[in-house]
Design a binder for these strands. Sequence first.
DNA 1: GTGGTCTAGACCACC
DNA 2: GTGGTCTAGACCACA
Lengths: 123, 123, 123, 123
Amino acid sequence: MEFSQTAPIYQQIADRICENILSGRWKEGERIPSIRELAVDMEVNPNTVMRTYTYLQEQGVIQNQRGIGYFAADNAVAVTRELARTDFESRELPRIFRTMDLLGISADDIRVMYENWRKGEDR
Amino acid sequence: MEFSQTAPIYQQIADRICENILSGRWKEGERIPSIRELAVDMEVNPNTVMRTYTYLQEQGVIQNQRGIGYFAADNAVAVTRELARTDFESRELPRIFRTMDLLGISADDIRVMYENWRKGEDR
Amino acid sequence: MEFSQTAPIYQQIADRICENILSGRWKEGERIPSIRELAVDMEVNPNTVMRTYTYLQEQGVIQNQRGIGYFAADNAVAVTRELARTDFESRELPRIFRTMDLLGISADDIRVMYENWRKGEDR
Amino acid sequence: MEFSQTAPIYQQIADRICENILSGRWKEGERIPSIRELAVDMEVNPNTVMRTYTYLQEQGVIQNQRGIGYFAADNAVAVTRELARTDFESRELPRIFRTMDLLGISADDIRVMYENWRKGEDR
DNA sequence: GTGGTCTAGACCACC
DNA sequence: GTGGTCTAGACCACA
């Protein structure tokens, strides 16, 4: 997998996992890949995945059963939504709005670009 | 001045300068504060401002006249717009759209929030 | 290591690294010394090496893998050649030719001196 | 006049003056422009020209007659040649040769480029 | 262990 | 006065 240089890798992995949960690919309560599996899959040091899992566990998105593995929490979807929403509204949006303001990009422009983007995605 | 913990200070200063140029507070071709002045003003080490200026000079936003000081480039506004726009479209937007998609936020929701935000700003 | 007084140390280190890449002592894609290692080796402050690495990374000569170290870029040789060639032709040559012209040094004189110089080098 | 960013301005002015002397445009023993004249002509701070003149006087290229002005020394051509030659051979050539070596540029290549350059100059 | 950022303070060349 | 380079040393995030 390719990673951005700007954000920490463990965070990018966390985002990925959250997407899997939100999109329903990983069901609540189900087992998720082991640290080693994911590390191999993502071509990353297991320590890095470990960090991701620790972080997500602190956030209540996943849970650990000793000796068995990690599981998506029973309320994983709700928790993840809440997490993503808070982050989006408090950290992303203000910066976005300021940039729009400075560059003269209207909400309408955003709408058009969003629609184009959705067409481009394989979904 | 207050700085966010997430982004490096020298970057936040660069953003600040770009805003000054885009908004027209600093005119193209005019002299901008000396490294030491700005360092005092922002309550940071001169090295940190130095780093900002070096970065902006590489980007073509500002220019140096030896022994005299730094000046906003003649085409500073265009260069800055281009910089900000590229960054916004290639780095911000894709992440934003993915989040909107996952959280079910529509472009209309964005429009409403944007309008509310503009009311909140004193402008 | 000994450094000239005329050029900045970080530049001289950069030149050194480029020579290592051009001569094949450092292979493309291979790891190069860590900042701290090189700093000890060259008896300079780590910050100075840091500056060199940042510069070379901007030029595309080396790449960073987070938490692991710096690596010679996959196309490091080509990039370095291009860099050196451009610099030589646009900055060095014109000055050289003007001096030759003024002093009445012919291209043949240069050839003789070059051959003598090559004999002097242990190669 | 346009100045390079890399070399000090006062040095570039000195080079210019040396060229005028070597090429015979300024004769030995003749008066050369006053500091103020040259400063206006070159769009430079008089202090900078002052520094150039002081430097050239130390080298014996020009002489000062108090209250009258600066003059090219009686043996200005010889002195200048010697200066330029020493600088060229001891400082320029070694670097040039090393670069040629690294880039695989032969003395013949130089000859060709030199001839092309001479055609390009208006002389 | 790695790199990245920042501070404090010094010294220098240049205008 | 200006910017530019360098050192020393600290602290942090990341792998």
